[in-house]
Simulated scan of single mutants.
Amino acid sequence: MIPFVKAHACGNDFLVVEETLAHDKHAEIARKLCARNTSVGADGVEFLERRDDGSYFLRLFNADGSEAELSGNGTRCVAAWLAYSEGLKQVTLGTHGGPRACTTVSCEDTSFLIETGMGVPQVHPQAVQVEGVGAVEGANVNVGNPHFVIFVDTDDFSSHGLAWQALGEKICFHPDFPKQTNVEFVRVLAPGHIAFRIYERGVGPTTSSGTGTCASSTAAIALRDCSTTLEATAEGGTQRVIWPTPADEMRLTGPAEIICVGKVSL
């Protein structure tokens, strides 16, 4: 039996497992535990390493067993668990996408509002030639992991005659992205508010994404002249981004909730 914690951020759910229990079987554990019909179910597993110097490091494995650089929502879920279980209201979590400093803004029982420093985003316009579709204009954004952001005007987020889920899958696995990419479809609702949908690398459509929120906001601020303080709404809820200048670190504030603690057989 393996102990786990389950938490979610705007419906984007993760399991937290101690790194010492992985025994180099991270991918196998993630695929097994994330299966929604036969196990606990989640979008990914955050393996939490507690280092001898007192620092923390996260390895994120998606539901398909692939390893990603980081998850903004997953990182926040781990920060919420450490705040709940150990009283750590400020904690820096190392990731393969860089360190992420998390601060608990408020909490009520198992529900937390957490601000996270998400690094300095990089963005540039890019067009992807999709077979049977043509050129898809968008923005290549790096927020510690890769994203391709497409602006849309449709209420259902469809683009180029395809549902966003279908086009998202085509672009995620496009040869231009040999390690695959996350894909966002963004509608600008107002200068200070965007809505988006996310096709997540290694998972598929998800209700929310922390790095997807940051990538969508980065493109909206840099390329659509949106406000540097921005509300970003996905299917699972709204998060807030602050990005004062292109040289500044982006700050992401959003909820995280502990769902349960348990043990599961492999």
Score class of each variant (00 low, 15 high):
A80Y: 11
E67M: 15
D52V: 15
C77W: 05
D52T: 15
N37M: 13
G65E: 12
G72W: 06
L58D: 03
T75A: 02
D64R: 01
E46Y: 10
T75C: 04
S71P: 09
D43C: 08
G41E: 03
S85R: 14
L48F: 04
C34G: 01
E86Y: 01
V78K: 00
R36N: 01
A68I: 11
D52Y: 11
A79D: 12
F61K: 12
Y56A: 04
R31E: 03
T38P: 00
G44Q: 05
R51A: 14
R59T: 15
S71G: 10
E69Q: 14
A35K: 05
E86D: 05
N37C: 11
D43R: 10
V78P: 00
S71I: 15
L48W: 05
A79P: 07
Y84I: 04
S39M: 07
E67H: 07
E67Y: 09
T38S: 02
E46W: 07
D43W: 10
S85D: 13
A63L: 02
L48G: 02
E67D: 11
R50S: 03
V78R: 00
R36H: 06
F57V: 12
R76L: 14
V40P: 00
E46V: 13
A63V: 07
D53I: 11
A42F: 11
A79Y: 08
R36Q: 04
V78Q: 00
K32R: 13
G41Y: 02
N73H: 11
G41L: 05
E69H: 13
V40T: 10
K32Q: 07
R59E: 11
E69D: 13
A35P: 00
E49W: 09
S71T: 13
F61N: 14
D52E: 15
S66K: 07
S39Q: 10
E86P: 00
C34Y: 00
V78Y: 00
S85F: 01
F61E: 12
V78S: 00
C34E: 01
E86Q: 07
Y56D: 07
L70D: 09
V78T: 10
A42T: 11
R76N: 09
C34H: 01
L58Q: 04
Y56C: 06
L82A: 02
E46R: 06
D43P: 12
S39Y: 03
R36T: 09
S85I: 07
S85V: 08
R31C: 02
Y84E: 11
R36L: 01
L33T: 07
N37L: 12
A83T: 13
V45C: 04
Y56R: 06
R50K: 11
E49L: 13
A63I: 10
A80H: 07
S71W: 08
A42L: 09
A80Q: 12
A79V: 15
E67G: 10
V40Q: 03
Y84D: 10
S55G: 05
G44R: 03
R59I: 11
Y84G: 00
D53E: 13
D52P: 12
A80C: 08
S66E: 10
E67V: 13
R59L: 06
D52N: 14
T75P: 01
G65P: 10
F47W: 09
G44L: 03
D53G: 08
